[in-house]
Design a protein around this nucleic acid. Sequence first.
RNA 1: GGGGUGGUAGUUCAACUUGGUUAGAGCACCGGCCUGUCACGCCGGAAGUUGCGAGUUCGAUUCUCGUCCAUCCCGCCA
Length: 590
Amino acid sequence: MLKRSHNCGELRNENAGQEIVLNGWISKRRDHGGLIFIDLRDRYGKTQIVFNEELHEDAYKQIFRLGLEDVIGVKGVVVARPTEAINSEMPTGEIDVEVREIHVFNEAEPMPFNVNDRNSASEDHRLKFRYLELRTKELQANLKLRHESAQITRQFLHDEDFIEVETPVLMKSTPEGARDFLVPSRLHEGKFYALPQSPQTYKQLLMVSGFDKYFQIVKCFRDEDFRADRQPEFTQIDIEMSFIDQEDIIDLGTRLTRKLWSETINAELPEQFPVLNYYDALEMYGNDKPDTRFGMELQEFSEFVQQSEFYAFKSVLDNGGRVKAIVAPACAKYSRKIIDELTNFVKQYHNAKGLAWMKAGDNVLEGGISKFFPETIQKDIIENCKVNEGDIVFIIGDDAKVVFSALSALRLEIAKRENLIDPNVWAPLWVVDFPLVEWNEDEKRWDALHHPFTSPNFKDMDKMDSNPGEVRSLAYDIVMNGYEIGGGSIRIHSAELQAKIFTILGIGDDEAQEKFGFLMNAFKYGAPPHGGMAFGFDRIVMLLANCTQIRDVIAFPKTTSAISLMDESPANVDEKQLQDLHLEIIRAKS
RNA sequence: GGGGUGGUAGUUCAACUUGGUUAGAGCACCGGCCUGUCACGCCGGAAGUUGCGAGUUCGAUUCUCGUCCAUCCCGCCA
């Protein structure tokens, strides 16, 4: 074969006169009759190679019938281009390779889509031919960025004395949290392994073992419904440390994040990230992963409602609900139609019953529900909520959950419509002081908000029995531009406290022993205080790559229905395989 | 589980609102011409079960229902 002496991105004027060999794909072909230009591509770049019928007839005759994406090797001489033919857009644009000899490695059938233009096919079509989409410069760049991010992470944690330890992919199914992917056992009839939702229990056991700084870049699996930023299998940077407190983890997580942003995209993040507690995050932004690149925080509105004659909202307050507002800057221009759209938006997606509004004139509020608010109250609103002339105030009154969910979504929707988000800004922050447990109305019991191994905040221990809902946990999330990119907690390292938490969560002794006995037993033999966190690696790379979906940074992603369009998994298996696994398919009766 | 949007040559889209002649165009593909292009250009050609199934109708790409797939969102995701 013709083995390459150079890649397709490196030849320059100073190589002129050299005889070289290039290997690559035919990316573009420009046929002038007797003179054919080819852009030859590999992952390093493109080089224009020239076939001249008069000079090298054999090579010309071969290239004549070749087309896009054929894989070839060419031997030729680097020549400086005539001045008027230099292409300053391309790094290799000052030279050509005059081809004397060509070897065809593989001819390509007509392409299902144009790999020079990622938008030349719909996403499902590109996913079907993912190996071709991966030829596009966007995905080549994304996977390179992903690789670099992993390298930086490994190097950073290695330098910090961490040890990467692999943990099992076949493990025991856990009762709480996301649905597990199950793997039937052949050797043990009727029994199943589960794929890890995270290596949580293993990394805690490694702390017991004395590996006081552990990390792993590891696949995790969750069988839930998917989104632009959620795949059935995804990658975490999993971290656990002993003899540390929350501040240590936040410090380490901050430094790792800063290093990643700095070394991949040259973005300098602040030395310390803002820290917001859970309740403030909820009150100010309506959710626990706020996008703080713009303002428009939620405003308390109940005091104004109390002084108004708007009985719909008064009764909301009487029934224990909340009324909050956001002030959309310079949006008094919104027509009835736009307001209706926004109303539908909060109704449809967030169960709001409606969307109240008032437009700000010169020191007065007009339209919408303004007539229910006396003039003095309007002035209070204008002052307290910092309303400017030309703004519009949107108000929602409902159960706290609906108010927060609808207003936080509306805040983002308006920011999008009004272009309030500067795409060059990075807004990292930590959210801390999550509640330890959350009341599950359907099941009539307390659920762990983070996971059942999360330590309560020791300051709140006195409320553990009387008022578990008010106990804060030592859990924390790291948020970037409205995406949760990581989270973790200080763990429980005492078998007694762990048992107590299981009791609160309604996990009986027998069940706890069966599911987590190994962990609780481990805590009997000298367990260090420990804690850690996990970063969503795909989401981090997605943000660094300036994408909005993690599929763009995963080599072979699945669709939102968890199908791989390329290899068509999941798929049927042979009856024999099912028998080996002691399985029988029960078809749903139609 | 629920809602929004989309599905028409290999591909990206048009025609559908108001059902009616032969379902059009760019790129790709095939043939021809062209010696400095880099979105090369020019001439010609082939290419369609309009996702699938049913219904309404004299007639359905168009209207209705169901279904499948993709995508975005709600629920869900310790």
